[in-house]
Structures are given as C-alpha cells and as structure tokens.
C-alpha cells in the first residue's frame, strides 16, 4: 500500500499528465520530426530518403550558412542593445510622477501590440526612396535623401524597425522592475547623501537587473529568429546584405523545396538559442 505522500505525489503526476502530453505533442513532436527530417532528403510531395549526415555536411560546406549566421548576429546584438537603452530610458521617465503619465505609458506600447507584418509594411512605405515619409521630411528640410534599403543601409534600417517594434517590451519589463524598488531604500540612500546617479547605480540597478537579464535574453532569442520584418522589407537583399538565417531557411524550404536540408539548417541554428535559453533557466532558478 502506498504511503500518503507518495499517493499524493502519484495523483499529482496523473493530474499533470494531460498537460504534459499536450506539451509533448506541441513542442517535442515538431522538434523530433525536424531532427528526423534533417537526416533525409525530403522534397515536398516526395517520400523521404535517408541520407545520414549529408544535409549537415552540405550546410556546413555552404558559404551562405556562415554569411547567414554573421548577418543574424549583426542584426541581433545591436538591435537588442538599442532596445535595452531605449526601453530603460523610457521606463525611467515614465516611472516619474507627472500628468498624462498613464496615457504616455499606453502610447509607448503601441509598436509592441501592432502585428509584425503591419509594422513591416508601415516601414516599407516610410523607407521608400521617392514617396516615403522619411525622405519627404529630409527633402523638406533641404537635406540629402537616403536610400534606406541600399546594400550599405539595409541592415541598419532593419535594426531600426526591430528596435521600434521591440523596445516597448523592454520598457514594460523594466517599468515593472522599477515599481518593485522600495521607496524607503531610495529615501535612505538620499539621507545618506547619495546622488541621483549613485541611487540609480547602487539601489535601482541591482533591483531591476534580473528583469533586464530576462528581457534581454528573451529578446536575443526572438530577434535572432526574426523573419517577417526582413522578408517583407528586403528578402535578404540587396545582394546578401540582410541574408539572416531565418530567411536562408525559408529560401531553402520554399525555393529548393528541400525540407531535409532546411531542417538541418534549422537544427544548426539552434545551439545559439539554446545557450541563451540555458542562461534564462539559470537566472530563473536563482
């Protein structure tokens, strides 16, 4: 006969079993299927043929993979850094007491709530060389117009879009962190003669640091996997100026119709994300 704690524990497992099964189906099945596919040549509409590690060797021998990885990194880190700076700055401002603060907070999250394809199309028009708002403003100011999506500027312009869309996430996260900073601690620091910067550095930052870590790591993972914005605005071009890994995977699947190679490519992009997921899990445990 089972003891009461073991019985309770067993009931607990039984109760979470349906959720576990659903989670497994939703998360693990696609992952294992992609892994299985990566060892096959699988043209769309044709049966899979086992090819061992050939797809991986093909991907690793391809220059595009390394270009894609480099472009992904070039896109991800500056974008996340800028989102952090903007989000932090805005959170500090909108954490102050002033009239209209609630309206400002609501307005600040608009880019975040807009669907990503809407954001991409808005910016596509803004960036248009002849008819776009940005160049119209520059022209009206007598300044030279910019080819926002040229080979030299495409990556910067994509980062701007990503930052515009993503900084409210940092803002919301950091603002919630700021609201958890005890006022009496800040007051005590003031009494002890700490300047505004010192209070921020030694009281506020330690409180909001875990939030900053989490939102930054999540943002790295999401930005690294961003596809829609880039596909709509540049399709990886001009040349290979914005050929990030998600675009390369998409092209492999829908241009080459090769699900096996696309899967191998996807699996090979994962260690980067897994590293940051690992960091998040470690942080959450602390």
């Amino acid at each position: 006969m089972l003891s009461l704690p073991r019985k309770q524990s067993l009931i607990g497992y039984v109760l979470i079993l349906p959720a576990l099964l659903i989670m497994s189906l939703l998360l693990l099945y696609p992952f294992f299927y992609a892994t299985w596919l990566s060892f096959h040549t699988k043209m769309i509409g044709a049966p899979a043929i086992y090819v061992g590690i050939k797809n991986y060797l093909d991907v690793l021998a391809s220059k595009d993979f390394y270009i894609g990885f480099l472009r992904s990194i070039t896109y991800t880190f500056p974008a996340v850094f800028l989102k952090l700076i903007l989000g932090l700055g805005l959170a500090l401002i909108l954490n102050q007491e002033f009239k209209g603060r609630r309206i400002m907070r609501s307005l600040a999250i608009i880019p975040w709530v807009l669907p990503v394809f809407v954001v991409a199309f808005i910016w596509m028009w803004m960036y248009d060389y002849a008819l776009g708002a940005l160049n119209i403003i520059l022209r009206s100011l007598g300044l030279p117009v910019v080819r926002w999506l040229s080979i030299d500027n495409a990556m910067m312009s994509l980062i701007i879009v990503n930052v515009w869309k993503g900084f409210p996430f940092f803002f919301m996260g950091i603002l919630s962190g700021l609201q958890s900073v005890p006022q009496d601690l800040l007051d005590a620091a003031s009494v002890d003669g700490a300047s505004t910067i010192q209070r921020f550095r030694y009281v506020t930052i330690p409180y909001i640091l875990p939030v900053i870590y989490i939102v930054s790591l999540l943002s790295i993972i999401w930005t690294y996997g961003d596809f829609t914005t880039i596909w709509i605005l540049t399709r990886g071009g001009p040349g290979d100026a914005s050929l990030v890994l998600p675009v390369l995977i998409y092209q492999t699947l829908y241009a080459e119709f090769d699900a096996g190679k696309a899967s191998a490519l996807s699996i090979l992009t994962m260690p980067f994300s897994i590293f940051f997921i690992y960091l998040i899990v470690r942080l959450l445990r602390r």
Binding site: M124, Y129, R147, L149, S150, T234, G237
Partner: peptide
C-alpha cells in the same frame, strides 16, 4: 534606371 531600383520590391 533609378539608382534605388536595386532595392525595390
């Protein structure tokens, strides 16, 4: 051809 034609969708 317009210089920005290389960036067009």
């Amino acid at each position: 051809i317009p210089p920005d034609a290389v960036e067009w969708d």
